[in-house]
């Protein structure tokens, strides 16, 4: 019988300061003030997931954003008949900013491939904090729009043949 601080040992160093450093580097939060960064670094949680655990499942409205500290996960999409792997998610990636901004049922599942350590920020906390910094919302929206446009631009300019067909359905940035 022993406690298992593992490499998640809170005693090793100050978790808050590490989180703060990470938040300052995530593009979605880039425009925010140091004061806001501190609040988010304080409000987020660290979670561990074992290989095979789901971080979120398709169809759920879990309202969380993740920053992967270590390990890797896969994004999958389920249909009535099969499950398709869509993409990989590696350490250092941040995903879920749209889930923070409003209700959204997941179109994909995120499943841990290896054991994962992750920062998790919940929508409830994010939105309460945003109420305290009303000037931040326009910046967050601007950052989101920029990223959506960038994503579509990449799709439109992707030289791969297979993208030609998808391009006929493009237009998210026109929403």
């Amino acid at each position: 019988m022993s406690s298992s601080p593992g490499n998640n040992d809170p005693a090793m160093s100050c978790e808050f300061k590490e989180n703060l450093k990470i938040f300052r580097e995530i593009p979605f939060f880039a425009g925010l003030s140091l004061e806001a960064h501190k609040v988010f670094a304080y409000l987020c949680r660290r979670e561990t997931y074992q290989a095979g655990d789901y971080l979120f499942r398709q169809g759920d409205d879990d309202g969380q954003a993740f920053y992967i500290l270590s390990g890797s996960a896969k994004i999958t999409r389920q249909t009535d008949t099969a499950t398709t792997d869509i993409a990989q998610c590696e350490a250092g990636e941040f995903l879920g900013s749209m889930a923070l901004m409003g209700t959204q049922r997941r179109l994909f599942s995120l499943q841990a491939k290896t054991d994962i350590r992750s920062l998790v920020l919940a929508r409830e906390k994010f939105s309460r904090a945003m109420q305290q910094f009303p000037e931040l919302m326009p910046k967050a929206i601007a950052s989101l729009i920029q990223r959506v446009c960038l994503w579509e631009e990449r799709l439109l300019t992707d030289p791969a043949q297979s993208c030609d067909q998808c391009r006929t359905k493009a237009g998210v940035s026109l929403l």
């Binding site: 809170p10 005693a11 090793m12 160093s13 100050c14 978790e15 808050f16």
Partner: peptide
């Protein structure tokens, strides 16, 4: 409680 209060770390000497 180090597992809950993350704003400072627990020095190992103190532990």
């Amino acid at each position: 409680t180090p597992g809950v209060h993350k704003m400072v770390g627990l020095p190992s000497v103190l532990e």
